[in-house]
Simulated scan of single mutants.
Amino acid sequence: MVTMLDVAKKAGVSKSTVSRILSGSVAVSEKAKEAVYQAIEETGYRPNLLARQLATKKTSYIGFVMTNVLYDGPYFSTIVYNAASFSESNGYQLVLADGKHSAEEERNAINFLLDMKCAGIVVYPTYLSEEEMGQIIEQSETPIIVINRHVPSHPEIAFVADHYQCAVDMMEYIISQGHQHIAFIRGTKGSSSGEQRFKAYKNVLERHQIPFNEQLVVQGAWRPDDGYEGVKELTARKQTMTAILAGNDEMAFGAMKALNELGFRIPQDISIAGFDNIAMSNYVTPALTTVGIPFDRILQKGILYLIGDERHSDVIDLNCDLIIRDSVCPPHQ
């Protein structure tokens, strides 16, 4: 492997001169610069950018921590895409660190990115508590933001959609179509967004004086097969059901498959809706009524905040969008 010393020997200068030229120093003659660049071309030398940036305590990296249990599926691939895209558009490289399967491993991933001297770090926490995230933020000189989780001690660095209001809006729409027997397929236990959506489901039922029926609720974990099995469980309970609200689009897709197999027409017999507005929701039949969670804007707003562009960050709103398509209609009379 070609080293900086090889370049220096080829150019007839010292190693420190090569280093100064690569770091952009102006205190080097044009003749020396020309010789070094010629030597780099002839030797094929590739500078170690990380080592150089660590030495100056400045890097062009944005770190992103997310546990690998979230990697699978279109929803989270879209999140990573947006994080990478907005980092790149602002002149930064995204570095993904795996939070794995525990709070300790999430903390280790954050420490790894801190050791890399990232310009800032985005954390999508799964295991670290709100209190633990607050402590990490207070102890770090590197700017850290949190997405999809509130941090009461540092609300200014928590970038999250209002999942409760998103679910309220969807429930109000479903009820406005005449539905009173609405089933709910829950997301993973302990999920902050899932709990907020379920809370909204119950509160809107109460607001409309519709009795809450535990038999119309099944537990899922965000996957299509959870929606599929959830519908099988709901129909086995023999409860009246004219609409299903799934905790996310992927579970809604699984639920639609089960309803079709069981002979139900969507939406004539049973309406269905979801959350997230992933790309496929507009291409299933019927097209899925859903809520658009603005993760593109969440990440854009958060990354602008990380790099110190609060003026542009502040004007980005994080309101959800109710997207009405074909999968919800008034109940069949």
Rank of each mutant, 00 (worst) to 15 (best):
V123D: 03
S102K: 13
G91P: 03
D98L: 01
Y164M: 06
T142S: 06
V146F: 11
Y75I: 00
L94M: 03
K100D: 04
D162N: 10
H154N: 01
N90S: 09
I144N: 00
I137L: 02
Q139H: 11
Q165L: 15
Q93C: 15
M116A: 06
I79N: 00
S102R: 07
I144E: 00
A161M: 04
Q93K: 14
V95T: 02
A83W: 03
Y124E: 06
A97F: 06
T142C: 01
P125A: 06
Q135R: 14
K117E: 05
E88I: 15
S89D: 15
V160S: 11
R149A: 04
Y92N: 12
E104Q: 04
C118P: 03
L113E: 04
N111P: 05
I157K: 07
Y81T: 03
Y92G: 07
L114D: 00
S129W: 12
A109H: 07
A83H: 08
E105H: 09
E106R: 07
F76K: 01
P155Y: 05
N90W: 13
G91I: 11
Y81P: 05
N68L: 03
A158T: 04
E141P: 11
A158K: 08
V146K: 06
P143G: 06
Y81G: 09
D98C: 05
Q93P: 08
D162K: 06
F76P: 01
L70W: 14
R107C: 04
A119P: 08
V69L: 15
E88C: 14
P74C: 00
I79R: 00
F159Q: 08
Q93L: 15
A161I: 12
L113I: 10
F112E: 04
A84R: 08
A83T: 02
D72N: 15
T78F: 09
L94V: 01
I110R: 00
I121E: 02
D98V: 02
S140M: 03
V151D: 01
N111E: 10
S102G: 09
V80C: 01
L113C: 02
S85V: 07
Y75S: 04
G120L: 14
I147M: 15
E132T: 02
R149N: 03
I136H: 08
I145A: 12
